[in-house]
Design a protein around this nucleic acid. Structure first.
Lengths: 268, 268
DNA sequence: GCAAAAGTGTTGCTAATACACCCATGC
DNA sequence: GCATGGGTGTATTAGCAACACTTTTGC
């Protein structure tokens, strides 16, 4: 609780944007603590990303395995939490927007570009980092399965099943939980599932994505009707052959349709 | 675009939380710009709040007027945007959480405590402030109508109808628009409308809140059934007398029921 | 033919809507 | 009484879940 830190003139504009300091009256009640603006200088800002991809668990024979949700983590090589796994991220550079920073840290880690990217939440509890005060603006992303298959792994980068996570650094377990909740909630009323598939795909493949994310089986007949009536798909006229059953139709995204409704916010 | 700022040792822990810097391989592709961590030091962090209250427009005779959404703004007394109206807010103090900061700036401005408070979004475009780089974590809040009636106003604090806003400082017009969208979207499936009412209230009063927020009339009969079946209300057994028609029942919140589903996130 | 998955049809349930109608109070 | 909103009943509709059924391929 060290207040009145002397940080020089760096933060003279910290309140430039806000109404703070423009308050015309004295203090309200007794709740106005004696804190100077300089106190704000001790807060650091970082951007992290929860990256989801659909993968089949190849620990067993890859035959017939249903895909599940995976995410890449990086091992920390310094204190605090040295040795633990954490979400990829880093400090925000002054020349890049928040989403840009998320996109970049994602590329640094996996070498891939996200098919979908959305801001998740800003985490800023006082005690979430034992060393310094850090506020993290967290994004969540989806990457295509085919690309995720050839994503980078290394000594300090590894993919984990979203339901088999080890204890993570900081509050990152909570963050991943929240990202999973948002993914599942949004999946129910939007079209983001397309983001993990290739250019063309069958309805069964799309349904498999929904099932993996939601964690339950869906009725093929009803799923077909729901998706078709949403108008999000276009029939390519082609079919997928080589299966040992009736060849299914191949669909494509309707590029004119929005993935999600972000309200008045521009889409990233 | 000033990179490589020398800001001393202040930000040595800026990447303490994130995986940045732990990347074991060299650069990926050609996309790794030559930027040091110190570049991150030039970003300031602020917390602002969009505060909503339900008021009747007393410019006309207050009789029979339907209430509308209002919000308090503060006038900027320094550059940039000096003289324009802006959302209340201020820098984040190192000893307070994000929600605490929002709650405090709300209290500083209106002297009131919010009945509902939720994080809205983090705004961090590079050019949203002409002077310095500022990332704003924005909250939105609801305050009770009765308390809002005796809220503070002054030379530099004034209430505005949400649909009659002047041009605001920074990107605050967009922020208010987005807050309005979230309020309306959430109102459809949650119970936050209770937050602007008093301890007890009639169904017509509750319906009036919904109508004001959604901007359309609702069928009293259907509204009653929807709300009653949600289980959010408790019949107090009392009735409101003094009206010139059949006295309506008075209800109370079911304190055990959650206002909204935030997933795994704790409620503020 | 047989297995397997694609694709269609039908039924029933639930929730939202529209709207007709009765109830209880102040005046 | 009559006006006014409180409060109830009911028919219609849309959407979704359940599930029986038909179709088309590989083997």
């Amino acid at each position: 609780m060290s207040e009145r830190l002397d940080t020089g003139s760096r933060h003279t504009d910290a309140s430039a944007e806000a109404g703070e300091g423009t308050w015309p009256l004295g203090s309200f009640g007794a709740a106005q603590p004696d804190v100077t603006q300089a106190d704000a200088a001790a807060v650091d800002l970082a951007v992290s990303t929860v990256i989801f991809a659909l993968r089949t668990d190849d620990r067993f024979g890859a035959q017939g395995a249903t895909p599940t949700l995976w995410l890449p983590l990086v091992r920390r090589i310094r204190e605090p939490f040295e040795g633990l796994w954490a979400l990829p991220g880093g400090p925000l550079r002054s020349s890049e927007g928040l989403a840009d920073a998320a996109r970049r840290s994602l590329g640094d880690t996996t070498g891939l570009a996200p098919r979908y990217l959305e801001q998740l939440y800003a985490f800023g509890d006082v005690d979430r980092s034992p060393s310094s005060r850090v506020v993290s603006v967290v994004y969540w992303a989806l990457v295509g399965s085919s690309e995720a298959a050839r994503a980078t792994v290394g000594q300090n980068v590894r993919w984990f099943r979203s339901d088999e996570l080890p204890p993570l650094a900081f509050d990152h377990n909570l963050i991943v939980e929240y990202a999973l909740w948002r993914l599942r909630t949004k999946m129910e009323y939007s079209r983001i599932a397309h983001a993990v598939l290739g250019e063309t795909f069958t309805l069964a493949q799309l349904r498999e994505v929904h099932e993996a994310v939601l964690g339950r089986r869906l009725d093929p007949a009803n799923f077909r009707r729901t998706i078709e009536s949403s108008g999000a798909l276009v029939d390519t006229g082609e079919r997928l052959t080589g299966t040992r059953h009736r060849p299914p139709k191949l669909y494509r995204y309707d590029s004119s349709a929005q993935l999600v409704d972000n309200g008045p916010l521009p889409h990233t």
